[in-house]
Design a protein around this nucleic acid. Structure first.
Length: 283
DNA sequence: AATGGACACAACCGCAGAGAA
DNA sequence: GTTCTCTGCGGTTGTGTCCAT
């Protein structure tokens, strides 16, 4: 019944990782690849829960993770993306090669909030998106509880009622990550983007080596029409939200490009929202 | 040198979505 | 359609380090 507790088992270690544990985890993943986090600790000989292993790998051990100070460009991009996306750290991280969501979140909470406040800017996420997201969350909870009430309650008010809940369309695409072109050679020396690849499930092609060890990006060069853009399936969403962006083939993501895409994305977003508002009032 | 507060960052926890059974 | 498991996300907490007193 219900979910099995992940880290509640006795005898499992908690707290900071030792170098030996790091080594065990790294060696295991290098050999067998990521995934199967629940069984991984046992197979790798670690006394950790799978969740902890995943976090350690993703935020710390994974090759290509950039450590150290954020550049001004990175800061700027984080601030911009946060104003647009809110606290969706994984999405923001997806736009910053080599940075993890945890790191960005920490950096935001410890540095950027203060910095923005000191310059007189009140750091707020994009109002509409945040509202939409919260509304959707509340709606989901409400929906669940109503469902439960409808099913189980003896309350006359709800008994036998079919409760219709309006489905809110949320702009919540899958996060993806732009990764550095550094493979598992443990070299963190080179921070430059040799190739920048994005990924989403739809674009991955499993290499059939039996282990799904390596994945390569399948490219979908295609033209996008304006209707597609408005439906949220276009390049701008793809760039910011990551449905199928494609920066391989040595396309450099320079500041102008980010700037341009960001501006255009904002414009597009406001058009979509205006459109939605119009539709609401016309109903 | 000792101590206590502030800060930074790693790690944990709970929840939700997706997909399999 | 329901239940269960796995995975990932975002918020929060814990702990080590730095610095002022």
């Amino acid at each position: 019944m219900g979910r099995a507790p992940c880290c509640a088992k006795e005898g499992l270690r908690k707290g900071p990782w030792s170098t030996k544990e790091d080594l065990l985890l790294t060696n295991y993943i290098n050999q067998y690849g990521e995934g199967q986090w629940r069984s991984l600790p046992k197979n790798a000989g670690l006394l950790r829960c799978g969740k902890s292993c995943r976090l350690r790998w993703v935020n710390y051990l994974k090759p290509g993770i950039k450590r150290g100070n954020f550049s001004e460009d990175e800061e700027d991009l984080i601030v911009r993306l946060h104003s647009l996306l809110g606290n969706r750290w994984s999405l923001i991280a997806g736009r910053l090669p080599g940075r993890t969501d945890n790191e960005i979140k920490n950096y935001w909470n410890t540095h950027l909030i203060k910095k923005l406040k000191s310059t007189g800017i009140e750091p707020k996420p994009h109002k509409n998106l945040t509202k939409l997201k919260e509304k959707s969350r509340k709606q989901t909870k409400k929906e669940k509880s109503r469902k439960e009430v409808g099913k189980k309650s003896n309350d006359e008010k709800f008994k036998g009622q079919i409760v219709q809940v309006e489905k809110i369309k949320v702009f919540a695409p899958k996060p993806i990550r732009i990764s550095c072109g550094i493979l598992r050679n443990n070299s963190f020396e080179n921070d430059t983007l040799s190739t920048t690849t994005c990924s989403s499930n739809s674009n991955f092609e499993k290499v059939d080596d039996g282990k799904d060890k390596e994945k390569e990006v399948k490219l979908f060069p295609r033209e996008l029409d304006f209707d597609e853009l408005l439906e949220g399936g276009g390049f701008y969403d793809e760039f910011l939200m990551g449905e199928s962006c494609n920066f391989s083939n040595k396309v450099e993501m320079n500041d102008n490009m980010v700037e341009k895409v960001y501006e255009e994305y904002l414009l597009l977003l406001s058009e979509i929202q205006e459109d939605q508002t119009d539709q609401k009032f016309s109903m």
